[in-house]
């Protein structure tokens, strides 16, 4: 079938070399430069993590020693004593909930903007981006008064506000995806007798899956990394990893705890990102 797949579904998330594509393969000096650049970039991202990894298991590391003088589990013990395990649970829950709320909303907004005549579309676009311009601290202070008066439970308030902050990311990601999405495929499926429901589940969703995963990941990060809204709106009902890290980092001599918590906080997004890379590269067409 002469289907034109949208480029989006085939383009991997971040992989410079596409195997099997002769036009994109580079040779000779260009190839060497490219590999060097990739290595330099990898180093650029990895280097800041080295002291983090060292500090996490350093019981003693005083200036001017280049490496820790004593290795051990003090950082782990202290982090556990400060409540790291429940904090990770809370953070995961918050990230997933924000993702679950902000992603469908972003999809709806993006689809409306892409395919329907939305009145004052430029204004709507600006409004969708507005949360990025509003400092979280201001929003938390101002809106918490409203949330308290409406008797919104603190945790629900946190999810609600953070979802608003995630909306620019999800709606933008989905807007781009819908921009590249070919409606003709959906129409063709309809012509072949698929119901609207089938079109959504069997055609649209698989084609948009990588973009959806990306949007959900970005929304997860918003919930995963917030301090201000969690503290001010959450009212201490949930202590998340960023709350632990920020309070530990405010003191002296907590380097091991802060490093361990920060390094551990990188893992869930990293796992999600790897999963996203695989998910995003899975061929979406060609199923009978």
């Amino acid at each position: 079938m002469a289907l034109t797949l949208p480029p989006d579904s085939r383009t991997p998330l971040s992989w410079p070399v596409q195997p099997g594509n002769g036009l994109r393969a580079s040779h000779g000096i260009a190839r060497t430069l490219r590999i060097l650049l990739a290595m330099a970039l990898a180093l650029w991202f990895a280097l800041p993590l080295v002291p983090l990894a060292l500090w996490a298991f350093a019981d003693r590391w005083s200036f001017p020693a280049v490496l820790p003088q004593a290795w051990g589990w003090d950082g782990v013990r202290t982090a556990l004593a400060q409540g790291a395990v429940p904090a990770f649970g809370h953070s995961l829950l918050l990230g997933l909930l924000v993702s679950a709320v902000a992603t469908p909303l972003g999809v709806l907004a993006a689809r409306a903007l892409a395919y329907h005549r939305v009145p004052y579309a430029p204004v709507v676009n600006v409004l969708l981006f507005a949360p990025l311009a509003l400092p979280a601290f201001v929003a938390a202070l101002g809106l918490n008064v409203l949330l308290l008066r409406l008797q919104v439970p603190p945790f629900a308030g946190v999810v609600l506000l953070l979802s608003v902050y995630a909306l620019p990311y999800t709606s933008y990601t989905m807007r781009v995806a819908y921009g590249a999405h070919d409606l003709a495929i959906e129409e063709e499926a309809r012509l072949l007798g698929a119901s609207p429901w089938q079109v959504t589940w069997r055609v649209q969703l698989p084609l948009l899956a990588p973009a959806l995963a990306r949007a959900a990941f970005l929304a997860f990060l918003v919930g995963w990394s917030d301090y201000v809204i969690t503290v001010l709106v959450g009212g201490g009902t949930i202590v998340t990893v960023p709350v632990l890290v920020a309070s530990a980092a405010a003191g002296t001599g907590n380097d091991a705890t802060v490093a361990l918590l920060s390094a551990a906080a990188l893992l869930p997004p990293l796992v999600l990102l790897l999963g996203l890379g695989l998910f995003g590269r899975r061929p979406t067409g060609g199923r009978p």
């Binding site: 008064v145 308290l148 008066r149 001010l232 201490g236 709350v243 309070s247």
Partner: peptide, 21 residues
């Protein structure tokens, strides 16, 4: 409830006062 700065606690209380909680 651990906070990075005691001001965070005060800010929360001030919003509660404003809301009449």
């Amino acid at each position: 409830v651990p906070v990075a700065d005691t001001k965070d606690a005060l800010n929360r209380v001030l919003t509660e006062i404003q809301a009449g909680t």
